[in-house]
């Protein structure tokens, strides 16, 4: 399998993503530059965290107009897995590939610390290797991570099982106090209607081995690997 990590000007988690994908997944990981017009045959795409275009205008607003995003849109429309982490999530929302938006944290502060999130759905291609209800400890590092959407959109996300992760206490309780940024309904990660485009604010790629303080992010990569392997068998 081959996985691509897109580098935008201002991306700063692209190497973390690359390293995590290489470590956990079998196969090849490559970098893709935002100006390219070709995904070079990758089986999955990562939009990494960072501050693409200096967060000018709004976080992700300019990056979503990068040339390579046309290819990413087509790839996603054809069912290809796309994972946007942190700034990548913001880019996917700005691109209209995921509903809603990420606005300034309720506290107005940039928050960089480990948080707990609960896996709400155990399903391919991103969370099949987690049991539903499992609590993960993963870092967040963002100033604009407060997820909002209109009430009907939030209701649809819930009804369709598209909320994959929610901020929670270490015991897995979803409480106001465990919500670091003010996100609606403690939402930390969602997928699109087809389930193949994931956006999440926490950083699983920074938690793939105990040396990093947590290996709770690794199963996300393993889930993706299992999905890609099954796709290859059925191809």
């Amino acid at each position: 399998m081959k996985v691509g990590v897109i580098t935008f000007p201002g991306s700063n988690c692209d190497y973390d993503c690359y390293k995590a994908a290489q470590e956990v997944l079998e196969g090849e990981t490559i970098f893709l530059w935002h100006k390219e017009h070709d995904l070079r045959g990758v089986d999955a795409v990562f939009l990494p965290g960072g501050f693409s275009y200096g967060d000018y205008l709004r976080a992700g607003a300019i990056a979503q107009l990068s040339p390579i995003m046309n290819e990413v849109r087509q790839f996603a429309a054809a069912g290809g897995p796309v994972i946007g982490i942190c700034n990548g999530f913001q880019i996917l929302c700005e691109a209209g590939m995921l509903p809603g938006a990420l606005i300034r944290n309720r506290s107005l502060r940039f928050i960089s610390r480990p948080v707990h999130i609960r896996v709400e759905q155990s399903r391919p291609p991103f969370t099949s290797e987690y049991g539903a209800g499992r609590v993960l400890r993963v870092p967040i590092a963002h100033g604009e991570g407060c997820y909002i959407a209109d009430e009907p959109v939030l209701d649809a996300l819930e009804a369709e099982g598209r909320v994959l992760f929610r901020y929670c206490t270490p015991d897995g309780e979803v409480t106001e106090a465990a919500n670091p940024n003010g996100s609606a309904r403690n939402i930390a990660g969602i997928v699109n209607e087809a389930g193949n485009v994931l956006g999440m604010m926490p950083h699983p790629e920074r938690a793939v081995e105990p040396l990093l303080g947590s290996a709770d992010g690794a199963p996300l990569f393993e889930s993706l690997g299992a999905h890609l392997t099954s796709m290859m068998i059925y191809k």
Binding site: R58, A61, C93, P99, A101, I103, I148, D150
Partner: peptide
């Protein structure tokens, strides 16, 4: 298309 985000 760019200058405002209709969601927010």
């Amino acid at each position: 298309q760019l200058l405002a985000n209709p969601v927010t």
